[in-house]
Design a protein around this nucleic acid. Structure first.
Lengths: 187, 187
DNA sequence: CGAAATATGTCAATACTGCTGACATAATGG
DNA sequence: CCATTATGTCAGCAGTATTGACATATTTCG
């Protein structure tokens, strides 16, 4: 592959000063700032193409993704995860429902709630999009080895706002466990 | 708190057991997909707040950033880097120019060109935004150690589309060299 | 020189995604 | 019964992106 010759050139952007724990002070991390921009752009680019053919955008992807990952999620919790407003969600959610990718069910105990689930078509689409992104990720992780992958996970988790970090990590772990239960558990 | 509770509902979404077992495709990298989403959201969140107070958005940030990093860049090259259209760029660029953060100069050899430069105010703003992002990055990198940082760089570079990767990496390295020349070179 | 190509700017129209504020409905819970 | 909660919806606005067409100045080339 492109043999990344970004090996922090001594004396450049990584200050020898050991105080870089918190302070930018010296030289900005230009390379990582720009790598994050380009990497994220291409990371979401693959799904974008598929979605465009269905008349959907990135917002639809996010909603579909989190509903697929958290079947039965409440609207309020989805708003909390996505950090968007009810109105923004409503528009894309309505389209996903009208097009048969998502369904709503009344809550068992609280009939005000509209619990969200993907339909078979919704799951198929969500999985297709996740597979596209997984292909890109796996190729790179394979070149890094397990310890590199672990460093990447720790880096990304650390980049999340401290207030949200634990909740996000719990959600990821929780959805994984639930998926496993659904897959090989009794149903 | 968004306690995403998932009660396995009977019979609505298809439990992907069949498909996943027959399909040789591995399980999607749910954790990295979601970590990238949350990490990037918060990574751009800090600058967003500063920009909003100036009446700017994310698009202004990207333009200002790359002009600051590549003084004298041509409009066409900026379009190429950002992968947006001339019209989209024109609007935000005009605002940055009107507000005194960017200036245009005729090309020396080709007077059709409008080479872009940041003003002192533009550089100050660009550096302020970069420092915000660098603070977030440095805190995490400090916890990872040098080898972890190198793994992160290789991961992000690998995530970029292969067609663009070399060009992007050259641009990053080139801008670093140019900045050094300007800083401690002749002047 | 004159025509074609290039670099840029601009206008009109449209789409997607986000926002605020207000209001409506239904259900829960004390 | 009443306050609160969960959700939906309407109207309007903003920011960022798109395509297509057209205009202007400049360079390049036959």
């Amino acid at each position: 592959m492109a043999d990344v010759s970004l090996t922090t050139r001594p004396g450049h952007h990584v200050p020898a000063t050991r105080g870089e724990q918190t302070a930018p002070a010296a030289e900005p991390s230009w390379d990582l700032i720009e790598l994050l921009f380009f990497a994220y752009r291409d990371f979401v680019g693959d799904p974008d193409e598929v979605l465009a053919k269905l008349g959907f955008g990135r917002a639809h992807h996010r909603v579909l993704h989190f509903v697929n990952r958290n079947p039965g999620i409440k609207v309020a919790d989805l708003l909390d995860v996505l950090k968007i407003t009810k109105q923004s969600l409503g528009r894309v959610l309505k389209q996903l429902i009208d097009d048969g990718y998502v369904v709503q069910r009344e809550g068992d105990h609280d009939r005000r709630q509209r619990l969200l689930y993907v339909t078979p078509a919704g799951e198929a689409l969500a999985m297709q999009l996740a597979d596209l992104q997984t292909t890109r990720i796996s190729r790179v992780l394979g070149e890094l080895g397990p310890s590199g992958g672990e460093a990447v996970r720790r880096f990304l988790a650390g980049m999340i706002n401290a207030e949200d970090r634990d909740r996000v990590l719990r959600m990821i772990a929780g959805a994984d466990r639930a998926r496993l239960r659904r897959r090989d558990g009794a149903r």
